[in-house]
Design a protein around this nucleic acid. Sequence first.
DNA 1: GAGCACTGC
Length: 712
Amino acid sequence: MATKMISLLGNKDFLSRENLYLLLQFHFHCLICVVTIVLVEKRLVEEVKKNDTLIIVGETGSGKTTQLPQFLFNGGFCREGKVIAVTQPRRVAAVTVAKRVAEECGVELGQKVGYSIRFDDMTSNSTRIKYMTDGLLLREALLDPFLSRYAVIIVDEAHERTVHTDVLLGLLKNVQKARSQSSGQQCNSEKKKSHNNSAMDDNENSQCFSLLIPCQGTKYPPLKLIIMSASLDAKGFSDYFGGAKAVHIQGRQHPVDILYTLHPERDFLEAALITVFQIHLEEGPGDILVFLTGQEEIESMERLVKDRAQQLPEDKHKIQTVLIFSSLPSEQQMLVFRPAPSGFRKVILATNIAETSVTIPGIKYVIDPGMVKARCYNPRTGMESLITIPTSKAQALQRSGRAGREGPGKCFRLYPESEFAKLADSTVPEIKRCNLSNVILQLKALGVDDIIGFDFMEKPSRMAVVKSLEHLFLLGALTDDYKLSNPVGNQMARLPLDPIYAKSLILASEFNCLEEMLITVAMLSVDSIFYTPREKIKEARDATKSFASQEGDHLTLMNVFRTSSEFLEKRKMSGSKDKTAERSLGKWCRDNFINSRSLKHARDIHSQIRGHVEQMGLRVTSCGDETLQFRRCLTASFFLNAALKQPNGSYRALANSQIVRIHPSSVFFRTKPECVIFNELVRTNDDFIRNITRIDPLWLPELAPHYYAAQS
DNA sequence: GAGCACTGC
């Protein structure tokens, strides 16, 4: 059979599975370990009582996320109305876990057990176990710097090292220190200083929040901190928390055989394709999950699988391909959860959305080419780009684990074992490869002034910090000595937006076009609004044309938002129930080739931000038809992103003289104005600018004299 | 005439 398959596939390099793969490793779960979590309740509660900080290393399926908070509740950690917080990097995880725990406890969701995520708060005064996103807890810290309502904070999935997790860990370390000082006899920091005047001690104090230094006699109970992580990273967390104790909990993961190729594969798409059919023809039943880097690869792989399946004998045809990536409309995403028709094998082609965010049942085989697209940030140019790089060991492990959720599985890594050894242990934390403006603004608002000296688990590069400080200074968020300015910097920090968008709202109230800017900023804050399926390109273009504004993409986006709002209003006026009206908005979106998930997100952001600016006392007025006023406001807001047309039709960005082109999705792709401002600079095949509005070049020195007067 | 991994406030 094997030989026959090879001739069908037409590839000489793959003679048989025995030649291709070496079985090298049987299990990747800890063999030495411990007992399952239900047996260790008593011990865990004791450990938390004994240690202020505890690292818990738990594998998937250990139940740590659902069980530990209940143990601590039963162990008396919620006395006097105190709350246990469990943070998650993702919204959907916070919601689903909370639902399950509420069910296990036999309580109504939102009572003893609840969750809180942006736009959706299911908690009440009686909530004691609160699942939430880490970003939301960071926001809470702005209002309550001691996080005084929490007795225990559990940071789950810490090994993912999102920006939010990293900032939160640094913050929690400070809060813990400040709270234990407040409850102990040494609340008075002066007293402590007089005992020990060393430079190191001074340094430590400077890293505490300015807000936390005056204790004012308020006593806070100590904060218990639990960091939950995958095994590879436990030591890093323990070191960061001064040698905190680490406890291992065994998971219920099934064994997964890991197989490697003998030689490196030049074309991993082809190698993945071959492997799909090897599994299909030689292995027992079970679905296959293939990790690919992006939409384009996934779509071409789908065609390849379908084509080759047709070449097989009829009884072997039965392969069903399904796709999943984040920009796929949700109805189509749902198809991956449907079991394949009887007798069919399902092949799921996925991005790393299937690594952590989405768990698909029925998977027995994983194919991992070992590549991933990652964001990368160049602090010198301030440009972000996406590049394809090898995965880390931790990521490879996470991927292979997807084969062992329901029973023993197999993972085919499309590279030799010697290559695996060369991979980095874990993925570079996001904080080292992103723009830091938002992080710095948040920290400043929390009273952390010395950003370079802040105790990050891993420090971002000095250049990245300096670049973002400069940026915030130019936006007026910081004073000459790099302190948060008042009121502008404070107001910006309160708005959950990219700092440049926050600033544009403040300016818009002065330009009398806050109404317009609220919509624009909401629309700019979400993923692509327009959805162009490959097979209906012409219809999609015609539909988007009807929203186009000759003044630019910002007004085009506003047209979409307003038209959709009017549509919804009309439906509601004519007596439709809210739900029915929302459903017909879904149809309206499909008819107009608009991504309804993005539009919904923009509407949520719009109403949340509107609430914030009203609370701040900014005047929400409209410039009506005087869009000139609005474009001037865009110029004042986004002056750092201005570009002038060159004789050859390309543009020169004024801030750094970089040569850029207009992205084909812009209304200005054909008619190129002399001078524009833009919101996004992306590097793909070329350096493209997106979301563009036409401006008068004379507005720049007029509206941003502090920048353009100095330049010329 | 292009193409965007994934999150989050």
